[in-house]
Design a protein around this nucleic acid. Structure first.
Length: 421
DNA sequence: CTATAACTCTCAA
DNA sequence: CTAACGTTGAGAGTTATAG
């Protein structure tokens, strides 16, 4: 197997820069939902010491001092730019696995020798020219090694100019390179495993590669054993061209203001259900289980912290927003307590089944309002999400998340384009 | 005892 | 003036429970 990992550089920031060139060469961060913390940073922002996940209020002084531009996340924009990028990348290989919003694996089995790095350079140039997004390319014999190669390309290690090909690297060179990478830089090694491996004296990627896969399988987990094999060029992870069927649909948000009352929570939960059910119908699925929760902020560690949660099966699987809403609101009323300051609520749809291949019920058929749901989805697709909604979702929605620094929907909304100066 | 369900922990982007 | 810290999804491993 020969595989490339293509990954957008500081993807969200790069998307913003495409439409606002004044952001070039400046420190820029994109904030998480609710303008909470930094989830993407330009190189300039990283150089100022802004760590991934830094809460916005904690870096405000630094931002003032250095003119850091902070933007609310604009997922409509990033999703659309991602679609364009993935379509371009699909043209470079017969097989593509879209792994996340900003990266994909490409199967390059037909190519060999210098063709691989050449292909990587063409990919980079093409994506940059066609949609303005800078990407880095890592090429290797397994997905885990390709991730590491990409990491090296991003860090400009081994003389890579945005493209790093491990397949032509002599074994000694590769070892020297991996010896400089901490074990936590390996795909699948998180903070906990890094600590456990460190206890065993394995602190670098090179050390992990040289370790005994069988022993680590037993001592730690089968995952680690697989990673060791992958680091040695033995592919354990296949390229997954078709995504496995979804197992759960989650919609959750932090509130823009502190919430104490049941009415606000009800509006929020009804809105999240509407969104989740919309996703459910788009995938032609139905939910057999419903999970609802509401909680206060875990960051304030006083005794008043509360997390209410309830998970219940549906009598019959459903994709009906109204059925799911009624049930979710019933569940919410059961977990609601007066007193706590709620900071977040969420819903999850579980036990998803194919709506087409449904199990017949012995019980009387539940109403599923299929025609109504279809009309609802049509109206909202044409006129925008939330145009047609249940009264339970509320009108003013004061609890909505903060997005004070949101940029226009440059690629998805004509009327917002008119605002661009 | 085994098989499965339920739950927790970890990881990723 | 003060307080303010994301979301979604998957998989593995452990514990509880049923038969």
């Amino acid at each position: 197997m020969t595989v490339a990992l293509v990954d957008g550089n500081n993807f969200f920031v790069s998307c913003e820069r495409v439409f606002n060139p004044r952001l070039e060469n400046r420190p820029v961060v994109v904030l998480s939902n609710n303008d909470g913390c930094a989830i993407a940073r330009s190189e300039e922002a990283k150089a100022l010491g802004v760590a991934m996940g830094t809460p916005w209020f904690q870096m405000r002084d630094l931002a003032r001092q250095h003119g850091i531009v902070a933007l609310s996340s604009n997922y409509a924009l990033y999703g659309d730019m991602s679609d364009r990028m993935m379509a371009i990348l699909a043209g470079f290989a017969p097989e593509q696995e879209v792994y996340s919003i900003d990266e994909c694996f490409l199967g390059l089995d037909g190519l060999a020798g210098s063709e691989l790095a050449d292909c990587g350079r063409r990919i980079r140039a093409c994506v940059r020219q066609w949609i303005g997004i800078p990407v880095c390319v890592g090429i290797a014999a397994t997905k885990t090694l390709a991730k590491l190669a990409n990491h090296c390309a991003k860090k400009c290690l081994a003389g890579s100019a945005g493209v790093c090909d491990f397949t032509r690297l002599p074994a000694v060179e590769l070892d020297r390179l991996l010896a400089r990478l901490p074990v936590g830089a390996v795909w699948g090694i998180g903070p906990r495993l890094a600590r456990q491996l460190g206890d065993l004296g394995l602190t670098t990627a090179a050390a992990l590669r040289a370790a005994d896969a069988t022993v680590l399988s037993r001592r730690l987990s089968v995952q680690v054993g697989r990673i060791v094999c992958e680091l040695n060029g033995i592919a354990c992870l296949a390229l997954e061209e078709v995504a496995a069927p979804q197992q759960q649909i989650i919609v959750s948000r932090s509130f823009g203001i502190p919430v104490q009352g049941l009415p606000e929570l009800e509006e929020a939960v009804a809105s999240y259900i509407a969104r989740a059910a919309e996703k459910l119908r788009r995938e032609n699925l139905r939910a057999g289980m419903l999970h609802v929760y509401a909680r206060s902020s875990p960051h304030r560690q006083d005794a008043t912290h509360y997390h209410g949660s309830l998970m219940l099966p549906l009598a019959t699987p459903s994709a009906d927003t109204l059925v799911l809403t009624r049930m979710a609101l019933d569940m919410l009323r059961r977990i609601y307590r007066r007193g706590p300051v709620y900071q977040k609520a969420g819903v999850a749809l579980l036990e998803l089944s194919d709506a087409a291949a449904s199990q017949a019920s012995l019980l009387p058929a539940a109403p599923d309002n299929a025609a109504l749901m279809q009309a609802l989805d049509h109206v909202n697709a044409r006129w925008g999400r939330g145009t047609l909604r249940s009264a339970a979702e509320g009108v003013r929605q004061p609890w909505q998340m903060k997005r004070a620094r949101l940029t226009p929907g440059y690629t998805t909304a004509w009327d917002e384009l008119l605002c661009v100066s």
